[in-house]
């Protein structure tokens, strides 16, 4: 696995990767996504930190970790951080980019669907 990571380290969001990872039952869906998005090295470091923390503090933290995993329920509307969204959509560049997805943009050189 390390070899594979080294091979396409840095490159993320590759469709072929997702097609390969998606049905790999050895990974949880969360891990699949982390690998696909190329966050995996970073995430593994975090995991190691967590584990060392667990051994220091006995079983207590392990339990709370399991609890947060349990707390995740199915959502149809994702939980957004609205402060981030507000910040994102107050930047003029982002607004201009998204404007291309609206019919009002046809006047500024769009192809007019």
């Amino acid at each position: 696995i390390e070899k594979a990571q080294a091979l396409h380290g840095g490159r993320s969001y590759r469709t072929a990767d997702l097609a390969r990872l998606m049905y790999d039952e050895a990974l949880t869906a969360q891990e699949v996504l982390r690998r696909w998005k190329g966050e995996v090295e970073h995430a593994e470091d975090e995991d190691k930190d967590d584990e060392s923390g667990d051994s220091d503090d006995g079983g207590f933290f392990q339990k709370s970790k399991a609890e947060t995993e349990e707390d995740i329920e199915d959502r149809h509307i994702p939980a957004f951080n609205y402060d981030d969204l507000a910040a994102k959509w107050s930047v003029e560049e982002n607004i201009e980019l998204l404007r291309q997805r609206f019919t009002t943009a046809t006047l500024n050189g769009g192809d007019g669907n």
């Binding site: 509307i77 957004f80 609205y82 969204l85 507000a86 994102k88 959509w89 998204l98 997805r101």
Partner: peptide
């Protein structure tokens, strides 16, 4: 109202 509008923009994005 604002949150909902932002969520819609995000969804379109």
């Amino acid at each position: 109202g604002k949150k909902c509008a932002y969520q819609l923009l995000e969804s379109i994005d």
